[in-house]
């Protein structure tokens, strides 16, 4: 019997290696898998490259992972959150690398990785400093730049519902980067608010089919608060 649902955070996090590329779902605090970040902190992997929209806020979650000097590099579109004190401090001290990526390019690089597309052309960033050093090509009279896929060794995902095959639904704007992190990562780890029996989630309502998911942990933490 296939059962992707695990019973402990340790089981969920097992096998994450130092130096992993970690794709992190969430936008603001909505849909951000905070329990999984805490699990990763506990698990101990270091020298990580983390891709997420924001670079953490306050001293919790991603900010705490960074504060513990476990993140070598952050790939994000918007490092300045409501309270980016940890990131700013590390960055000014030269203790963390930063790759700024336009938000749509970040999302598309993840989707491309999930779809097996190693690179794609986009108009976003043409004529700006984002285009420096990138391959340019004119297609149909417009100039585009080449952007490469962004594959994750590990994807950390927050879902609303999950079943033992790993089928997922999301809640409202909690969807954001989560389905992309799931499809783009070799090891997709999910925290789900609700565990459903197989067949209980209407196939028409599944957003992320279980093929993109490896392990699920039930984390019924309630509503997000604060950003």
């Amino acid at each position: 019997m296939i059962n992707k649902i695990v019973q402990s955070m340790a089981d969920l996090m097992s096998g994450i290696k130092d130096g992993s590329v970690v794709l992190l779902g969430g936008f603001g605090s909505v849909g951000q898998p905070n329990a999984l970040i805490d699990g990763l902190i506990e698990q101990g992997a270091k020298d990580l490259v983390v891709a997420a929209n924001n670079a953490g806020a306050g001293h919790v979650g991603l900010a705490r992972l960074m504060e513990l000097n476990r993140v070598r590099k952050i790939i994000c579109s918007f490092p300045r959150s409501s309270d980016p004190v940890v990131f700013e401090t590390l960055y000014r001290a030269g203790k963390i690398e930063l790759e700024i990526v336009p938000q749509g390019t970040l999302a598309e690089r993840m989707r491309a990785a999930g779809a097996g597309v190693p690179a794609f052309f986009t108009a976003t960033g043409v004529g700006t400093k984002m285009a420096v050093g990138k391959e340019h090509r004119e297609i149909g009279g417009r100039t585009y730049i080449l952007e490469e896929w962004l594959k994750g060794d590990v994807g950390l995902v927050e879902a609303w519902e999950a079943d033992r095959w790993g089928n997922l639904t999301f809640k409202q704007s909690g969807r954001n980067f989560n389905p992309l992190c799931a499809m783009a990562s070799d090891l997709s780890l999910v925290q789900a608010q609700h565990i459903r029996e197989l067949g209980e989630i209407d196939p028409d309502h599944v957003v992320t089919p279980g093929i993109f998911v490896d392990r699920v942990l039930h984390v019924p933490y309630g509503d997000p608060s604060g950003f």
């Binding site: 579109s77 918007f78 490092p79 300045r80 990131f87 700013e88 960055y91 930063l98 700024i100 990526v101 336009p102 938000q103 749509g104 390019t105 976003t124 960033g125 700006t128 984002m130």
Partner: peptide, 8 residues
């Protein structure tokens, strides 16, 4: 550390 977000 500029923040581009979705502007581009």
């Amino acid at each position: 550390a500029p923040a581009v977000g979705g502007a581009m």
